[in-house]
Amino acid sequence: MPPIIITVKTMSDKILLAHGSGGRLAHDIIRNSLLPALSNPVLARLDDAAVLEPAGRLAFTTDSYVVQPIFFPGGDIGKLAVCGTVNDLAMVGAVPHYLSLAFIIEEGLPLSELEKIVYSVKEAAKAAGVAVVAGDTKVVNRGTADKLFINTAGIGTIPDEVDISGHNARPGDMLILSGTVGDHGIVVLSQREGLNFATELKSDCAPLNGLVAEMLAASQNIHCLRDPTRGGLATTLNEIAEQSDVSIRIYEDKIPVREEVSSACEMLGLDPLYVANEGKLIATVSPDNAKKVLEQMKKHQYGRDAAIIGEVKEENPGRVVMKTGLGTTRIIDMLVGEPLPRIC
């Protein structure tokens, strides 16, 4: 598997099955149009594997991106793949360094769209300070993939003093959310065929490693970090409660939700707490450090709307409960199945 992204420019402006077969033309294109976008010393060697020399404890993650549509307000599948992978590394307190990207392309994808996505990858990698050091491309028959799927892997290193895990939330910890929930999921839904509705919302898709670095600089008492992607805030909180064997109490009126998001959710019969985010994190922080961390987060572009939304408790481990705006209490369960719009 060559450590490169292969695409081919021919007379056709669409990806053909033949583009998956490699060959001289493919190699010319890698050198002429892809390396300039993504190049770095490791990738430029074009060896069969990237040779890396990281120092310290390694964090290693993999993820696949199948978002539909592949372009959406605020990003595209390329930006999403980079940010998502970087964020997974950042959530264990790692400094992300290297990514691999494997593209699975449906025959017929316009070449211009692929190039636009490669450009997004470049920009997102630059913003996150990571290098794409390995890659692969496959072309599959029309109908056997939906335009473009991207699989990634990411490698980062964890500073010695950092110990962050979903298992580490402790009773008494404050729960900090880095900003509004539901933006990404609603943007993507709004673009779906058969559901198009107009919104000025943009996906929150962003790399969070910079924000995490600032938070860690403010306090070493950050116990747990998570990015609430699919399944939304509710599902992620349930995961933390389960992994750390604690309960979590949140306050509805403290959770930042954009008016557009809550209106769209109301219309579609969804709950913003279950809608996906791609540029948000939740942190549990020891109570005496929470304010300091929050203030630091508010100074960062991806943490401006950060808020303390609840706390970690000991009783009823595994359970997440919410104090509602009405002053009542209810259980917040994990997402079950796909959220479907209501019919009546």
Partner: peptide, 13 residues
């Protein structure tokens, strides 16, 4: 407003 103002605890009280 469609959502937020319909969930004010003051009015509910």
């Amino acid at each position: 407003k469609l959502v937020s103002e319909f969930r004010q605890s003051g009015l509910a009280d």
